[in-house]
Amino acid sequence: MIFKFANPLKFQRFTKQIQPFALSLSIIFLFFGLFFGFFRSPPDYLQGETVRIMYIHVPCAWFSLMIYSVIAMCSIFSIAFKHTLADIISRSCAPIGACFTLATLVTGSIWGKPTWGTWWVWDARLTSELILLIFYISLIIINNAYENKEKGDRYAAILAIIGIINLPIIKWSVDWWSTLHQPASISKLSSPSIDNSMLVPLFIMTFSLFFFFISVLLLRIRGEIIQRKIDVIKFSHVR
């Protein structure tokens, strides 16, 4: 199965075939998710109608972490086997992950204004999400900082590997720090039991965003492969 795509041209064709399916699945799920979220789920007894932003906010937060783990796995693969596809995937994942993280932060603070009364709290979750955003940004920067594309890929992979081990430590210490600075009452965002009528639109939205992620990723991978081919052709003609 893997060997079938051990060829950039075949993989490019494959992405071209799969991408419309993913995009249309994403749009269908988005339609149903928004419908259930807006009209078929009850308002929260405490927060009222504002709780509906959860259907965007929570999946985005999940994906911001998931995409980082994808990048981390690709980086290990790229350091160990020096496979170009791993480099391409991690390079195209980083901006998408940064966008999901930014969306999480923005929707979170929009949600926070009516419920907590402020746009921003130095809470453990918010702070570690912000650090994740900074991390994505530094990955994007280092991907493009070097004149040589291969070098940028390699250094970004090294940075991501430092990140895998250090991000849990940073998260843990930020948790500790925030409990030190203020009581932990605020961070009771998610009540432990969610009713099914809220859970269904949440999962539908998660699927929608997942297929959206897949379709954008395939698009970016295709663009990256074409860009690299152009580079090779340029270099082969200029002596």
């Binding site: 060829n7 596809l85 690299r228 090779v232 082969s236």
Partner: peptide
């Protein structure tokens, strides 16, 4: 001598070709 291979037809058969 610097190699001047004429690569008029560029093939992309493996992933290493587009590194």
């Amino acid at each position: 001598q610097p190699i001047k291979k004429s690569r008029d037809i560029v093939k992309f058969e493996t992933w290493d070709d587009i590194r």
